[in-house]
Each structure stands twice: as structure tokens, then as C-alpha cells.
Design a protein around this nucleic acid. Sequence first.
DNA 1: ATAAAACTTAGCCAAATGCCTAAATATTCC
DNA 2: GGAATATTTAGGCATTTGGCTAAGTTTTAT
Lengths: 114, 114
Amino acid sequence: MPNEQSDLDRVFHCLADPSRRAMVARLVDGPATVSELAEPLTMALPSVLQHLKVLEDSGLIRSEKAGRVRTCQLEPARLSEAEAWLMQQRALWEKRLDRLGAYLETLQAQEKKE
Amino acid sequence: MPNEQSDLDRVFHCLADPSRRAMVARLVDGPATVSELAEPLTMALPSVLQHLKVLEDSGLIRSEKAGRVRTCQLEPARLSEAEAWLMQQRALWEKRLDRLGAYLETLQAQEKKE
DNA sequence: ATAAAACTTAGCCAAATGCCTAAATATTCC
DNA sequence: GGAATATTTAGGCATTTGGCTAAGTTTTAT
């Protein structure tokens, strides 16, 4: 039983690191090379490569090498999956609040009758 | 220099674990005790407590003890922060695609002229 | 006054993370 | 061909994570 891990686990794990979030945010503006992604980060290149691997494994980004340059780009579908999970929780939460509100109103209405 | 970590880091870290996501999902339906949160999870209580601590530290949930029972509830604001980050990235991404689309149309228009 | 219930704390441990330096590798430029 | 560029691999290391068992503690029930 090898470390089973869902896509959602991996995506949220990616987003939990500020350097990786910065890389994602950079790629939202368009493709970038490894060096370009590394430039604003205060760490050695091999460390950036590790983050890159985590990001690729999660499916959040994809990259291709042309000559000696690797170019990375965002795979927005995975971002959407994470967003969808959050949206669903909020939707359910709001539904519950609505039910609760309706219930409280019923109580009030009954109070007046009595 | 103590492990500086942003709220967003902590929230996404919470969501990266399936047990913690399950706990959040459960609390979306309304408050629950520690045992209730633990019941569907296949792990010992102390492990659940650790997850609970991580969740509370992130601000995603809040809990209070009455007698011997601790009751937990969701703090939806933090969920929204995470959702907001994702929404913003998507908004920027779509903006970029629009710009790109407009640019490509311009190119096509010029081709016809020449 | 005991016992049961519902956490809590303490302490242990294996694996995963995140960062580094040094040494390759592969391309492109001169 | 030889140097510069752009990664990439290898290996090391401290910390964090996520799980466990065993032993408390605090309330509540009998």
C-alpha cells in the first residue's frame, strides 16, 4: 500500500508553501523558465527544482524542456478543483445557515401565537 | 526567528490532509464534539486531537469545553480567505487569456490586410 | 464513593519536508 | 574545441508531521 494520496491532498499541499504559491502566482501571468521562477525566491536552484517537482506531481503546472531551458506553465484545471471543494463547503455552510434561520423564524412565530 | 508562517500557509496546510478536510466537512453541517469528529476517522483519539490543534491554530475552527465535552465549530472566514486567493488567481489567469485572445485577433486582422 | 465517559498529556518513532553544497549534464555561444 | 548557461543529480541534515500507546485529569452517572 504505497502512500495513497488524492489530487486534492497534493494541490492543497502545494498551496501551503509561500514559495510554491509565488510560483503559481507568477505562472498565472504566463509561462516562465525555471530561472525566472527562481529569481524572486531567496533559495538555491536545487530547492526551487524540488518545489517544481511537487507542483508538477500535483498537476498544478506542467513543463517542457527545449534545448537547455525548461519552460513551465499553469494547468488551471487543478486550481479549479481546489476552488470547487472550497465553494462546495461554503455552499453547504450557507444552506445550513438558511435552514437555521428559517427554524428560528418559526420559533418566533409560535411565540407570538402563544 | 520563530517559524514565521502566514494564515494562508496554515489554512492550506490544514486542507492538505484528508482527515482534516473530513473534519471541516463535518463541521459545515453544524457543531460537533471531539468524539463525533473522531468517529468516522480510523485513528486513535490523541491523533484526532493533534489534527484539531492544527485546525484551531489555523483559525479554521474554534472550540469550547463545557463540562467534559469539547464542542467544535467552523470559523468560515478562514475558508473564505483561501477561496479568495484561488479566485483571484483564476481571475488574473482569465484576464491574461483575454488579452492573449485579443492580441491573436489583431494578428489575424493584419494578415488579411497584407 | 466508584466507575464510566470524554478528553488530555507525555513521550516515542518513522517518514516526509525543505533547504543546502558540490558535482554532473546538456546546450549554446565564440 | 572550450567556456558560459541552464538546469539536474546526489547526498547530507535539521525539523516537522502524523501516527501510536500508556497514563493522567475532569466531569458526570450510579
